[in-house]
Amino acid sequence: MRPFLARKEVRRFAPVCHDISIAGEIVGLHDSGAMWWPDENTLVVADLHFEKGSSFARKGLMLPPYDTAATLEKLAEAIDAFQPTRVIALGDSFHDGEGSDRLPASYRAMLTTLQLGREWIWVTGNHDPIAPVGLCGETVDEVALGGLVFRHEPHEGAVGEIAGHLHPAARIRRYGRSVRRPCFATDGTRLVLPAFGVFTGGLNVLDGAWGPYFPAREFSVFMLGDGRLYPFTATRLVSD
């Protein structure tokens, strides 16, 4: 049989962002799934789900153990591109409560290097309700900065809220074919970030679970593309 050739994928990572306004603050959406807040020099990522592979392996499903490394690489590229002074991880940074404990030493070192010289905030999530073990950074349930509040799970009716948790994904249809991608979802007063971790699935933004946050399709999404984002109003989307 022909072996597969491994290919190092070269990503163009120029920090070109799609600027939008959330509750009056200008923030940039990046095609990696990260949010960049230039006024505060802050990079925000949601749902890293480190050690998801090993979390499944513990339950007998042997997913490839490369997710943490791949997510870390992706994060390093984003940090390298933006050079933020502050990084906020919006919760579910580890797939389970013991995830940070299981983190292999080499990845721990890599993460520590990324954290050097910048403020690092771990927002707690439902998967990781406690502070990560043996890692730098401040652990909070939520944090307010300027006109924005950062938390894991969105709250109903919140204004200026930046959240994760829901893993937004959207689907569009054209010529009888459809494309489903992770996306940012916003109605101008709040923003939900796509999951940044490489093994993370997505929940269609038209699913009932979104009802309390973005009612009746009155919101927009920015689907992640290669080097750019694709904006759509929710009325143009199709469900799964």
């Binding site: 290919r7 994928e9 997913l63 490839p64 997505g202 929940l203």
Partner: peptide, 17 residues
């Protein structure tokens, strides 16, 4: 679904690594 793992992602990761 967001908790489960997409086979596409595993495919990409395996091909790379």
């Amino acid at each position: 679904r967001q908790v489960t793992v997409s086979a596409d992602l595993i495919y990409d990761v395996l091909r790379r690594h």
